[in-house]
Amino acid sequence: MRILVIGAYWDAQGHISCSTARALKVLGHDVSTFDYVGFRDRWSDKLRNRLNARLHARGWKVLGCRVRELLERVRDWKPELVLALRAETISPDTWRCIKKTSVLANWCQDDPFQWGAQIPEPRVFDYFFVFDPFYIPLLRDAGARNVDFLPCAADADVYRPLSLSSAEREVLGSDLCFVGTWYQCRQVILESLLEFNLAIWGSSWKLPLMRPWNPLRRAYRGRACGHEVVKIYNAARIVLNIHHPQSRSAMNMRTYEACAAGAFQLVDDKAELRSQFAVGEDIVAYRDVQDLKRLARYYLAHPDEARHIAQSGRRRVLAEHTYVHRMKAMFAAMRDGIR
């Protein structure tokens, strides 16, 4: 099958797009990719595309340069399936043009209704897959058809155990590490963990940490992306996963990626966690801050137990939660029909 994958290739979503395309190729499909944001001039393209989507919603017919390129790609390459990975800045009118010749599907690994990243018209897609089942009834209420739950995944070719040098462990190592964007809810939890050798990596921390009284300033190590994140997971004794509020019942990609990297992970408990992992054997879940601190102390004092759980978690992800598994599930859902 000829499949066009439309995703972002410059930020944290970049590896989702690349990993999805690789998985489809492994399954024998002819795959082409399209960056709906635009790498060379990503901010102006992103702003223009979002403005374009807003104008389309109000009846204006305006096309940005990325939209023209996309329509030309579809016309020339003639994909049978177009798989959008969120692609929130592409207008419904553009999707309708594409839909004349291709089946449309969307796999959204974020809240599809969040401000600034809202999918303008979910009903335009033939199939809509979302990372958290909480959003399924909301998407149906918005007119989306054939909506199904498709969890996040890990790319085992990217996230894997590494042999780090002593210098790398010195720079990247910690007892507890957190990799992710700043949010106030995360700030509160991380402040309670300063008794540990805590390392924080990620974006959007600079402004909050400019406040001289912010206690997390000494724990912040800087931005991290790509292969460096894999090294950080390998260097940490415990990888801490604090979900964004958009993860109502299911898990983010970090849940699968940290396990695939062979890291021991402490994650805030979610309703879907036990349907995908053996909690206490593959991964350890905490209920609140006091529980988190108790578990961190215990597993830092019992590294052999932590190592055994980390190895089991990696085996689980390789057996059930890679991008190849997700693409197989997506095609099975399309083939069987989704209510």
Rank of each mutant, 00 (worst) to 15 (best):
W10G: 11
Q13H: 13
T20S: 13
L24P: 14
L27N: 05
G28W: 04
S32D: 13
D41H: 07
S44A: 10
S44T: 14
L47H: 06
L51F: 07
R54A: 12
R54Y: 09
L55M: 12
H56Y: 06
R58F: 09
K61W: 07
L63M: 06
L63P: 00
L63D: 14
R66F: 01
V67N: 01
E69C: 01
L71A: 07
P79I: 00
L81I: 12
L83T: 06
L83E: 07
A84S: 13
T89Q: 11
I90A: 02
S91M: 03
T94W: 02
R96F: 08
C97S: 06
I98V: 15
K99A: 11
V103P: 03
L104V: 08
A105V: 04
C108H: 03
D110T: 03
D110P: 08
P112F: 00
F113V: 11
Q114I: 14
A117I: 02
Q118V: 06
P120I: 05
E121R: 03
P122M: 03
F125L: 08
F128C: 04
V130M: 07
F131Y: 13
F131P: 06
Y135L: 03
N146H: 13
V147S: 10
L150F: 01
A153S: 10
D155K: 00
S163Y: 00
L164M: 06
S165Y: 04
E168Q: 09
R169K: 14
L176M: 09
C177A: 12
C177Y: 00
F178V: 05
C185W: 00
C185H: 08
L190F: 08
I200K: 04
S203H: 11
W205L: 08
K206L: 13
L207N: 05
L207G: 02
R211N: 14
P212S: 05
W213D: 15
Y220D: 13
G222T: 09
R223M: 15
C225M: 10
E228A: 04
V230G: 02
I232A: 05
Y233M: 10
Y233V: 02
V239L: 02
N241F: 00
I242D: 06
H243R: 07
S249F: 03
S249N: 03
A250M: 01
A250S: 15
A250N: 09
A250D: 15
M251E: 12
N252V: 01
R254M: 04
R254F: 00
T255M: 08
T255I: 01
L266G: 05
L266F: 08
L266W: 06
L266P: 12
R274C: 10
V279H: 04
V279L: 06
E281H: 02
Y286E: 14
Y286Q: 08
L292P: 11
K293Q: 14
R297M: 08
Y298M: 04
R307N: 09
R307C: 10
R314W: 06
A319I: 05
A319K: 05
H325E: 13
H325N: 14
R326P: 11
R335D: 15
R335N: 09
D336M: 02
